[in-house]
C-alpha cells in the first residue's frame, strides 16, 4: 500500500480509534470509582448530540480556528503516516494546538482566556520534548519517515529509554489528564469551569473533542515508533501507558502551571536531553 493511502486511512480510522479509546477511558475511570460507567460508544453519542445542538458564536473567529484545529491535527497524523518528514510533523502538531489556543483566547471570557493561556504554557512545556523525540528517533534509525522508522533494524525503544520515559510524562499533558489538565477539564465545578472550552457550544465543542481523538491516535502512532520492530507490541505498550494515565488521572489533583512547566522542562532536559546527548557522544 502506498504511503498516501496510509495517510487517508489515518483521517478515517483515527477518530474511530480515538473515540473508542475515550469510551474505554470513561468506563475504566468509572470502574476505578466503583461505578459501572457509560456505554462504550458514549463519546460518539456525545459528539453526535453536540452536532444536533445550537452553536453559539461568541466571536466569529472561533469556528474557523477550531476547524483549523481539527484540520491541522488530522493533517499532522495524515502527513506522518503519509511519508512526510517526521520533524516537520512536530511543527504541524504545534500549529494545530495553537489554533485551539487562539480560538479560546480570542473569546473575552475569563475562564476561556485562562484556559488559553494555560494551554499556551502546556504547549511551551511539551513542544521541546516532541521536537527532541522525533529528532532522536530520526537520528537512531537514520530514517526520516514513519515507514522508514518501521523498516529500520534499530530497536528504537532500546536506544531511547530516557525519551520513552519522558514520553509517559509528557503524554499526560497532551492527553489533558490530571495532574496536568491545567487548561481544561471534563470535571465540573472547579476554578477553571471548563477552561479552554468554557465558551464553546454545540458543534464547536464537538470539533475540540474530535481533534482530541486525532491527537490520541497520533500519540499512539508515536508510541508505535518506539516499538518499531513490532507494531502489536507498540499498541500493547500504548494500552499499558494509557491505563497508567487513567490511574494517575483518578488519583491526583490538578497541579499549578508553574509546576507543570518546570517539571516538564526538567524531565525533558534530564531524560530526553540526556539520552540525546548520550547518543551523540556515543556516535550513534
Amino acid at each position: 500500500m502506498n504511503p498516501l493511502a496510509y495517510g487517508l486511512l489515518f483521517v478515517v480510522v483515527a477518530p474511530i480509534f480515538g473515540g473508542l479509546l475515550a469510551g474505554v477511558d470513561r468506563i475504566v475511570s468509572a470502574r476505578m470509582q466503583g461505578r459501572i460507567g457509560p456505554p462504550l460508544l458514549q463519546p460518539f453519542y456525545d459528539v453526535g448530540k453536540l452536532f444536533q445542538k445550537e452553536a453559539r458564536q461568541v466571536n466569529p473567529v472561533v469556528e474557523p480556528l477550531l476547524l483549523g484545529h481539527v484540520g491541522f491535527m488530522a493533517a499532522a497524523g495524515a502527513l506522518a503516516l503519509g511519508g512526510t518528514d517526521l520533524i516537520f510533523i512536530a511543527f504541524v502538531f504545534a500549529l494545530a494546538a495553537l489554533c485551539l489556543v487562539l480560538a479560546a483566547g480570542s473569546v473575552n471570557s475569563p475562564y476561556s482566556f485562562a484556559g488559553a493561556e494555560r494551554e499556551l504554557v502546556v504547549l511551551l512545556a511539551s513542544e521541546p520534548f516532541f521536537i527532541l523525540m522525533l529528532a532522536a528517533i530520526c537520528k537512531v534509525t537514520s530514517a526520516s519517515t514513519f515507514a522508514g522508522v518501521l523498516a529500520s533494524p534499530v530497536m528504537v525503544a532500546l536506544e531511547l529509554p530516557g525519551v520513552l520515559l519522558a514520553f509517559l510524562f509528557v503524554a499526560t499533558i497532551k492527553l489533558r489528564k490530571s495532574p496536568f489538565d491545567i487548561s481544561t477539564s471534563h470535571h465540573p465545578h472547579q476554578e477553571l469551569v471548563n477552561g479552554l472550552t468554557s465558551d464553546m457550544s454545540g458543534r464547536l465543542l464537538a470539533y475540540v473533542e474530535m481533534a482530541h481523538w486525532y491527537e490520541s491516535a497520533l500519540l499512539c502512532a508515536f508510541v508505535v515508533l518506539f516499538f518499531n520492530w513490532s507494531v502489536p507490541l507498540g499498541l500493547l505498550a500504548f494500552a499499558i501507558a494509557y491505563g497508567l494515565e487513567v490511574l494517575v488521572d483518578n488519583s491526583t489533583s490538578r497541579a499549578k502551571w508553574q509546576l507543570v512547566l518546570r517539571s516538564t522542562w526538567a524531565v525533558t532536559l534530564l531524560f530526553t536531553g540526556g539520552n540525546v546527548l548520550a547518543l551523540f557522544l556515543l556516535g550513534r
Binding site: 466571536n59 473567529v61 480556528l65 504545534a94 495553537l98 489556543v101 487562539l102 483566547g105 480570542s106 473569546v107 473575552n108 482566556f113 488559553a116 493561556e117 499556551l120 504554557v121 504547549l123 511551551l124 513542544e127 521541546p128 520534548f129 521536537i131 527532541l132 529528532a135 522542562w265 525533558t268 532536559l269 536531553g273 540525546v276 546527548l277 547518543l279 551523540f280 557522544l281
Partner: peptide, 27 residues
Amino acid sequence: ATFLIIMAFGSSLTIFYWGKLLIKILS
C-alpha cells in the same frame, strides 16, 4: 546534541510570545 536541545527549547519559546500577541489581536 546541544544545538538540537537549544533549538527545541528556543522554537517552543517563540510559539509562546507570538501566541500571546495573536490572542490579543484576534479578540
